[in-house]
Amino acid sequence: MALIDVRGLDLPPRLAGVSFSLEAGEMLGVIGPNGSGKSTLLHCLAGLLPCRGGIDFDGRPADALPPRQRARSIGLLPQTCDSAWSLSVEDVVALGRLPWDDRDEGAMRLAMQQTGVEAFRHRKVDHLSGGERARVWLARVLAGRPRLLLADEPIASLDLYHQRSVMETLRRYADAGNGVVIAIHDFSLAARYCDRLCLMHGGRLDAFGTPAEVLTENRLTRVFRVPVHVDLAARPPVITTQ
């Protein structure tokens, strides 16, 4: 049974007829030009936008889940995040336990270890660098141990080292039997870490499949309106504009 099964998701004019499914243990990369509906899709999956169509989570309609239960099962890492207050790293990570109404020290410690933020758990988030902060936001979602993790461009502002570190963390999280859906602009990293890719174009699903099926030169050139060179045989895969 699929972890999440999406059928004919509609939110005019931002999303039209999107269908796909994701198994537990898989990592799905959502790619596409700016404004193609990547974030909208993730928000619909998280239940933040009222969309038509069907979303089944673990065989049950996601709409039937009470909000708290849905939040325990599906965690969202938004594209932009900021703390209004000068909270400590530990307190931010503890916020991830709010849907569970507890402060599970084990889950929090594991999340901090997975993201490498444990060393500065007592520091204030507003005193951290952008890369450190991005990992703290991820640790907050991981602390909730969601079965499905939705990450909206989590590596957008990170340097090369932290990009790889975050992608490896998400990959390991999926390998542990969870599902990960990540909106991403870096095709090379998407091809390297994702099991499947979902190419969005104008609010529609243009292609869905393995990286080899989706990342073809003709398709990317048509969707992104620039000539694209694809070499998936290279290690790591190379996808660049010509």
């Binding site: 325990r72 938004p78 909270l87 916020l95």
Partner: peptide, 16 residues
């Protein structure tokens, strides 16, 4: 507490 990280995060954590 949830609103510390913004409305979007609070809603994603199940708060109305």
């Amino acid at each position: 507490a949830a609103l510390s990280l913004g409305e979007e995060v609070a809603r994603s954590m199940g708060f109305t």
